[in-house]
């Protein structure tokens, strides 16, 4: 009688070997430290700058840019939320403090960075 599990095991075995052969032993799949490209350099320049996010529901979030990934998930620190852009510009109302937030670019209407040179205080 045929025994399918055995065949499966054999296929698995070969696959595993293939996988090993394809992958160079020297680099781990999660080691990106060496990778550089123009885009990455541009992103690195943006770190610690103020971002303004306009969400799909018109809320405005201001925060410091900390982190991103391939899917353009943006992590901001010390974020404040305003109900809309007008409220932000008028500064009549205190914002809601949200803290550390993450948002995907798909949920944004627009993304702005503050280009004004600000002296960052050293702590």
């Amino acid at each position: 009688m045929e025994s399918p599990p055995e065949v499966d095991a054999e296929v698995d075995e070969t696959r595993r070997i293939d996988h090993k052969q394809k992958e160079p032993a020297s680099t781990s799949p999660f080691n990106f430290s060496a990778a550089t490209s123009p885009g990455r350099t541009e992103i690195q320049k943006l770190f610690n700058k103020e971002f303004k996010l306009i969400l799909k529901d018109d809320r405005v979030v201001i925060g410091t840019f900390f982190c991103t990934d391939k899917d353009a998930n943006i992590v901001l620190g010390g974020a404040r939320e305003y109900e809309n852009d007008a409220e932000f510009t008028s500064r009549k109302k205190e914002p809601r403090f949200v803290g550390l937030v993450m948002v995907n670019i798909k949920n944004l209407k627009a993304l702005f960075v503050d280009t004004k040179e600000v002296q960052t205080p050293t702590y």
Binding site: F32, P38, G39, F66, D69
Partner: peptide
């Protein structure tokens, strides 16, 4: 565009 240059699982952060 910039983020599309990154790899799956890569994290760029301060």
């Amino acid at each position: 565009e910039w983020t599309s240059e990154m790899q799956e699982g890569e994290l760029l952060s301060i």
